[in-house]
């Protein structure tokens, strides 16, 4: 297992999206080879995200396996959707990984509910929209737009699997402050993305 600090290769999305959809249609039809293709395309990104969140190789493998099996089972339903396959797949990975660390955390009183990804209802395709500009410099630039407390709040949520309420308790910060740090942090990153590529943030 090799670990480097180069950012994930996200530049391919715009071209790859139609191909993704074609693969997903075959996955929906129950073609195992198509599942292999989907896996090969996104295994590195999926595993990297899962590993970053769980910090545990075995758990990260389980998360990735669960996520691809979830995609396998739900592809037929998703084919009729509108969002990109990548957005969908990686959001499944993220949510399963968060779910895994939440379950592992002994102090968390988590109801026995499996976390499902948020809907993309009225959400533009977040990956296609910004990923064309997501090269290493852009990622660094967007992260640099965050204040320390904003970065802390976003990382505790996205990678730590903490809820806003838990972040508030952990950092001894009022809940309202945590909420605005997360919100302003996301907006700051979006502004940096838009500045890096004026087309990326366009609503059209």
């Amino acid at each position: 297992m090799s670990e480097t600090t180069r950012p994930l290769p996200l530049r391919v999305v715009t071209v790859a999206d139609d191909a993704d959809r074609a693969v997903l249609e075959r996955v929906a039809a129950g073609e195992l080879d198509a599942l292999d293709e989907l896996y090969d395309r996104y295994k590195t990104m999926a595993y990297s995200i899962a590993y970053r969140i769980t910090n545990d190789a075995t758990l990260a493998e389980d998360v990735v396996q669960d996520a691809f099996l979830g995609a396998w089972r739900n592809a037929a339903r998703y084919v009729h959707g509108r969002g990109s396959v990548k957005t969908w797949l990686l959001s499944i990975v993220h949510h399963r990984a968060i779910d895994a660390v939440r379950r592992r955390r002994p102090t968390t009183e988590l109801p026995d509910i499996e976390v499902v990804p948020p809907p993309q209802l009225r959400m533009p395709d977040v990956w296609s929209e910004v990923s064309a500009s997501l090269d290493a410099d852009t990622v660094r630039g967007a992260l640099a737009a965050l204040s320390d407390v904003q970065r802390e709040a976003l990382e505790l949520a996205y990678f730590g699997g903490l809820t806003q309420v838990e972040i508030s308790e952990r950092t001894a910060t009022p809940l309202g402050t945590v909420k605005s740090r997360m919100r302003l942090g996301l907006l700051a990153m979006r502004a940096a993305l838009t500045a890096a590529d004026p087309d990326a943030g366009a609503d059209t």
Partner: peptide, 9 residues
């Protein structure tokens, strides 16, 4: 996606 793209490979 910036957060997701920032993870080590």
């Amino acid at each position: 996606p910036v957060l997701a793209a920032s993870v080590p490979v």
